[in-house]
Structures are given as structure tokens and as C-alpha cells.
């Protein structure tokens, strides 16, 4: 698939934004500026960006506890994201949600759920709204390998299939549900095979190849927008860091980690862009520097922002109109 130079550079830049944002968030976590916990997206950037590069502003995404990448890829602002991670009033959720629940409804992000698999039925409902309105929007629903063992997965995918809802189910298979490896909890190798049970296409792809993700989602998107129903896309990928906080991820063999680090999606894409003459090494370096500056500014904004007033605890339980 041929994409314009600007689009390719935009994809590269978005992946870098996620990487640098996560590195900064982890740095702030180490400085004790991040309350609670944090689930980093480092290593999986090609999935979020490859998916969202296909989406319009009025399309939806459903995110997860490891959701920073989804939000950045769909167009959320880094400063309001970082502020939320730090529990600040200027954050997307005014300090009510934190790292696991960053959401920008104005960009079509339907929320990030902390309950594994719970976003799947919600995404199906968004697909239902689209079908009722008769538009050609789509919903990209992100979830992990672990979520595919939830009952919500079975119920949700089946309902979307039988009603032909415009949902793209994006399973980010990073091989581990917390510390439990895929082989310990399922006998199949490709989660995409589960699609057969619902009568929809299932495609397993290299989730560290952003163009492979882009192309697969492009096909799934055409199908969904055309009223032909959902697709289950399995993106095989890897988180470079542990599950959360300072998890050293000792449950993963060192050779496996090294193998996947070599498949770093950003390095791969950069090499490819240089090889095909889209950018030079110098231009890539300039993009990175620019991204680092934006991320630093977001961090500064977050750090300097005030915490919410304690009484704000009581706001927004209900919509009052």
C-alpha cells in the first residue's frame, strides 16, 4: 500500500510521541510524581498508530488500562494527558481518573476501562449507535490477549457479528496477561482463530510492523464502513517494560525479551522510511528532538498545574440538568 510521504512521517512521529511520552511518564513515576500505578505502552506503538492512522476524527476508539498510546494515536493532547496521570485539575478527567482512565470524548475516545475486557461491550454499543444513525463511522476496540478470555469478549464479539456492527476488534497480543503467559491460559496460538466461532474474519498480523497493522485495519475498516460487520484483528506485539509500576517482568525469558527488543516497531519503521527515501537520518533526528520538546512541555504543564480542590470529589457523580 502506497501512502503519501506526509502520512508516513505523521505515523512515524505519532509512534515517537507515544514512546517519548511513556518514557517521560515513567521518569516522573520514578520521581514519585505519579500517584498510584502506571501501565506503559512502550513496544506496542505500531498497533495504536497503525489502527488510528485509518480513523477519522468522528470514528471512535475504546481504550484499556494500557491506554496512553491509544489516546495519543487518536489525537489526545499530551499536556492534558500528563496532567491527568499526575492527578491534576487540568487533566482530561480533572484528576478523577488517572493513568488508567484518560479519555477525550471530543476526539472520539470512549474511555479507558480498568476492568479487563469491559470495553468490548461498550464498543459494541457505540457500533450500535452508528448503525442506528446510518453513518459510516467505525469503532476500533482495543483489548489484550488476557481480555480475550473474558466472557465479555465472547458476548460482545458475537453480538457485533450477528448485528453486523461497524467494530474493529483489535487484540493486542503482547503474550502476557500480567505475569501469565498466553500458553498457560489458552491452547491456541492465534487468538484471531476465535473469529471463526463468530462467523467473522480473523487476521493475525505482526503488530510491530506499523504498515502491516495499517493495511489490515484499512481492510477491516472498509468492511465495517460498508455495513459488512466486524473483524477480529490480532496484533502480535510485546511490551518492553513490565506490566505496571516497577514490575521487573522476571517471568519472561531474557532471550525472548531481547528478540522482541530487536523488533522494536519504531526502529523498524525508521529504517524502512530511510531505506525508501522518505526521510534522512538527520530528519528523523529532528522529528525526535521536536517530539521530546513537546513532551517536556507537557510534563512541565502537568507538574506546574494545581491539584483539584478536595471538595471536587463530590462533583460529577450525576449529570444535573
Amino acid at each position: 500500500m502506497e501512502l503519501e510521504k506526509e502520512k508516513l512521517i505523521e505515523i512515524y512521529r505519532k509512534m515517537l510521541e507515544i514512546r517519548r511520552f511513556e518514557e517521560k511518564a515513567f521518569e516522573l513515576f520514578g520521581e514519585n510524581l505519579v500517584p498510584g500505578t502506571i501501565h506503559l505502552y512502550v513496544g506496542q506503538e505500531a498497533v495504536a498508530v497503525g489502527v488510528c492512522a485509518n480513523l477519522r476524527k468522528d470514528d471512535y476508539v475504546q481504550s484499556t488500562h494500557r491506554g496512553h498510546g491509544h489516546c495519543i494515536a487518536k489525537g489526545a493532547q499530551l499536556d492534558k494527558m500528563m496532567a491527568e496521570i499526575l492527578g491534576k485539575k487540568t487533566g482530561y478527567c480533572q484528576g478523577k481518573g488517572g493513568s488508567m482512565h484518560i479519555t477525550d470524548f471530543s476526539m472520539g475516545i470512549l474511555g479507558a476501562t480498568g476492568v479487563v475486557g469491559a470495553g468490548i461491550p461498550l464498543a459494541v454499543g457505540a457500533g450500535l449507535s452508528i448503525q442506528l444513525k446510518g453513518t459510516d463511522q467505525v469503532v476500533a476496540c482495543f483489548f489484550g490477549d488476557g481480555a480475550s478470555n473474558q466472557g465479555a469478549f465472547h458476548e460482545g464479539v458475537n453480538l457485533a457479528a450477528v448485528w453486523k456492527l461497524p467494530v474493529i476488534f483489535v487484540c493486542e497480543n503482547n503474550l502476557y496477561a500480567m505475569g501469565t503467559s498466553q500458553s498457560e491460559v489458552m491452547l491456541i496460538e492465534d487468538i484471531a482463530d476465535r473469529a471463526t466461532g463468530y462467523g467473522i474474519p480473523g487476521v493475525a498480523i505482526d503488530g510491530n510492523d506499523v504498515m502491516a497493522v495499517y493495511e489490515a485495519v484499512h481492510e477491516a475498516g472498509k468492511r465495517a464502513r460498508g455495513g459488512h460487520g466486524p473483524t477480529l484483528l490480532e496484533c502480535k506485539t510485546y511490551r518492553h517494560k513490565g506490566h505496571s509500576r516497577f514490575d521487573p517482568a522476571k517471568y519472561r525469558p531474557q532471550e525472548e525479551v531481547e528478540k522482541w527488543i530487536k523488533k522494536d516497531p519504531i526502529k523498524r519503521f525508521k529504517t524502512r522510511l530511510i531505506d525508501i527515501g522518505v526521510i534522512t537520518e538527520k530528519e528523523a533526528e529532528n522529528i525526535d528532538q521536536d517530539v521530546i520538546e513537546v513532551v517536556e512541555a507537557a510534563a512541565k504543564f502537568a507538574i506546574e498545574s494545581p491539584f483539584p480542590d478536595p471538595e471536587e470529589t463530590l462533583n460529577d457523580v450525576f449529570s444535573i440538568e
Binding site: 470512549l110 461498550l122 454499543g125 457500533g127 458476548e155 460482545g156 453480538l159
Partner: peptide
């Protein structure tokens, strides 16, 4: 719907936050 209570409500909530 199918016999899928969790998704009946989940889909209803998802539809509710998107204009239905």
C-alpha cells in the same frame, strides 16, 4: 438479543455514551 446479559447492558451503555 442473544442471552448475554453483560453485553446487553454494556452495549446499552456504549450506545448511551454515543447518542442513543
Amino acid at each position: 438479543t442473544p442471552i448475554s446479559e453483560n453485553t446487553i447492558i454494556g452495549a446499552a451503555v456504549g450506545a448511551a455514551i454515543t447518542g442513543s
